[in-house]
Amino acid sequence: MGDAAILVTISVEQVTALLHQEAWFLDHKRWGNWLALYDKDAVYWAPALVGDEGWTDDPDNDVSLMYMDRAGLEARIFRIEGGDSYATDPLPHTAHLVTNVLIHDQTDDLTEVSATWMVHSYTRVRSATVRGGLYDYLLRDTPDGLKIVRKKIYIHDDRIVGPVDIYNI
C-alpha cells in the first residue's frame, strides 16, 4: 500500500487524467486513440473467478476471462470495426465511471495504480446492463507521456449477460 517515503514524481492528478482519458476514448469509440495509451509490451488481463472469493492468478496455468498482449487488443479493434461480429452489431452506448484512484508504488519509471470502475452499457436489443469491479494498473513514464504497461481488470460478475469486451469493462 501507499508509503509516505515513496518519492512521487507522477501525481494522482496525472494518473487520474490518464484513466479518465482512457474511459473517454472507449465511450466515444476512438479505438486508435485508446490503443495508443498502451505501450508496446502491454498486457491486458481479466482474471476469472475461482470459487466464490478467489481469482485466477497464473495466466499460464489458469484460465482467465481475457489475457492479451497488444496484438490481441489490436485484433479486438479489428473485430469491432469490421462490423461482422453479430454480438458487436450494434455496439452499445457505454458510460465508464472510473474513480477511487490511488498510487501505491513508484519505482524508476513505473507507477502502480488502483481504481474502481462501473460501466453502464445500453443497446436497444438487450437494454441496459451495469457491471463493475476494480482495476490495477502499471504505468510507465515515457518520452511520449504516461503509458499503460499492464491493466488488470477484476470483473465482479460471473453470471454474465451479453458480451464482455474492451468497450464495456
Partner: peptide
C-alpha cells in the same frame, strides 16, 4: 479441469 470459471446467461 483447470482453475478459472465462467457462467453466462443466454436469453
Amino acid at each position: 479441469v483447470l482453475r478459472g470459471e465462467s457462467r453466462y446467461i443466454m436469453e
